[in-house]
Design a protein around this nucleic acid. Structure first.
Length: 418
RNA sequence: GCGGCUAUAGUAUAGCGGUUAGUGCAUCGGUUUGUGGUACCGAAAGUUCGGGUUCGAUUCCCGGUAGCCGCCCCA
């Protein structure tokens, strides 16, 4: 190994994050709400390895090849297998469902909070490693499952304290759009390109949009027809109506919504922040009724979504929805007056800890006053001083740092106060 | 892959072609040798790297690197 005198950088690798305790507290808060909401809807948790064989993403019909080749972390392992750090969960969960297809009682509701890696240029709302809440319903293509999954997505945001007017649900239907395009004589390859164009429509002006559309179709009349079809917005939607039944009304049917990718077969949806601060969608999902068939068995209908931690945190910060104090401090800090009482303090801490209370021993070499100050700063509720007097008399004082109230007695008595 | 912007202690920032490079927060110590949060005093800690212009560069110029933002793409 070549040793270098160069100091190692303390920064994390490009596009990934260190979670110092303050950040971890936020991350945990987000994960906890995600998990609770999913479970309130009867979803059960699963997970898988971050490593997958690259074939999973290369199989025909699985994914766009350019993405796999250029935007994944892939490498050859020591056994010369090509492996990929998962860039999304859908192929993995489809693999797992297909593997147990015969024994699962459908419909199945599964959720997971996995991390993903994508080799991309980091920018606002997009990093190289991120986590997502992934929720899927497998085994039904009834529109009520579309309603349910979107209601879950909606409820997740509500459970963070968001108000419906702070975000908007956009819905479209792939199958419907394909029928409409076909009726206009638009070919399949054109549809793919139009979807891609529509996806970035809000980034370009009308004139450029129409020019691009003309380039795709090569037909001025068709541009008019497509534009008219897209602008005409009084579309009937069972899903929209179903959501309204559940009291969810911040929903729009958006025929420009594409969610560019091929495996979606029906409903597609996104949730966006309406503040204008966060351009990247908070969540995206859709129906994929054919994906499991690449594992050989019969196709299992599915609908699901992924909701990212990066955009979620941005959203919560933008709308000031993060709780002020997320850090968790031990309830009690046992403070030896001198280092020579550190071990005795740990024994006492153990006694208290054994009844299920979080306790930390302050073994710093600071003066007593500073140790107490540390306890207050860390957020501990109580302190218990251990010094010569306490140890000889076996009489301890438990002090409540908020109220200043003190209670004294033997350790057995003290324990009852907690 | 392409483009724009930025780079000053741990962090957030001020400033300037010649300064002991200033301040807030955080850290550590003291006022208070066994009782906290406040206050006061003090300490440690900085001009991203390489080259150029200049008597002199942290400041101006070029390049590297890194970060942010956007394009692309977004499974």
């Amino acid at each position: 190994m070549i040793m270098s005198n160069k100091k190692l950088n303390t920064e994390p690798y490009k596009g990934v994050r260190d979670f110092y305790p303050e950040d971890m507290a936020i991350q945990q808060y987000i994960f906890t709400i995600w998990a609770k909401t999913a479970e309130r809807f009867g979803f059960v948790r699963y997970d898988a390895s971050v490593l997958e064989p690259s074939d999973l993403y290369k199989a025909k019909g699985a994914e766009n090849e350019e993405l796999v080749n250029e935007q994944t972390y892939s490498f050859i392992d020591r056994g010369e297998r090509e492996v990929t750090l998962r860039p999304e969960m859908t192929p993995t969960v489809a693999r797992m469902i297909a593997g147990k297809q015969r024994e699962l009682a459908f419909p199945v509701r599964w959720y997971s909070i996995p991390n993903f890696f994508r080799y991309e240029r980091p920018q606002k709302g997009r990093l190289r490693e991120f986590w997502q809440l992934n929720c899927d319903i497998f085994g039904t293509n009834d529109f009520s499952s579309d309603v349910e999954i979107i209601a879950l997505a909606y409820q997740t945001l509500i459970d963070f304290g968001a108000k419906p007017e702070q975000f908007e649900i956009h819905i479209n239907d792939r199958a419907l759009m394909n029928r409409m395009y076909s009726a206009l004589g638009v070919t399949e390859s054109m549809i793919v390109e139009i979807n891609r164009l529509n996806d970035k429509k809000n980034k370009i002006d009308d004139q450029s949009y129409r020019t691009a559309l003309k380039e795709i179709t090569g037909d001025g009349l068709m541009v008019e027809e497509i534009s008219m079809m897209l602008e005409n917005s009084d579309e009937q939607s069972d899903v929209l109506a179903g959501l309204a039944e559940l009291g969810i009304t911040n929903v729009v049917f958006d025929k420009f919504l594409a969610r560019g990718f091929d495996y979606y077969t029906g409903t597609v949806f996104e949730i966006v922040d309406v503040s204008g601060e966060n351009n990247r969608s908070l969540l995206g999902g859709g129906r994929f009724d054919n994906l499991t068939s690449m594992f050989g068995g019969e196709a299992v209908s599915a609908i699901g979504f992924g909701m990212g931690d990066v955009t979620m945190r941005d959203f919560l910060e933008t709308h000031k929805l993060l709780p002020e104090n997320l850090k968790s401090a031990p309830t009690v800090m046992v403070i030896p007056t001198e280092s020579e009482y550190n071990l005795e303090s740990q024994k006492i801490a153990k006694e208290i800890r054994d009844q299920g209370i979080s306790v930390v021993t302050n073994i710093s070499t600071k003066k007593l006053g500073k140790k107490i100050s540390d306890a207050a700063h860390s957020g501990s509720a109580y302190i218990l001083i251990v010094g010569e007097d306490e140890l000889t008399s076996q009489n301890f004082v438990l002090k409540n740092l908020q109220t200043g109230e003190e209670k004294s007695g033997s350790l057995e008595v003290i324990k009852k106060f907690l």
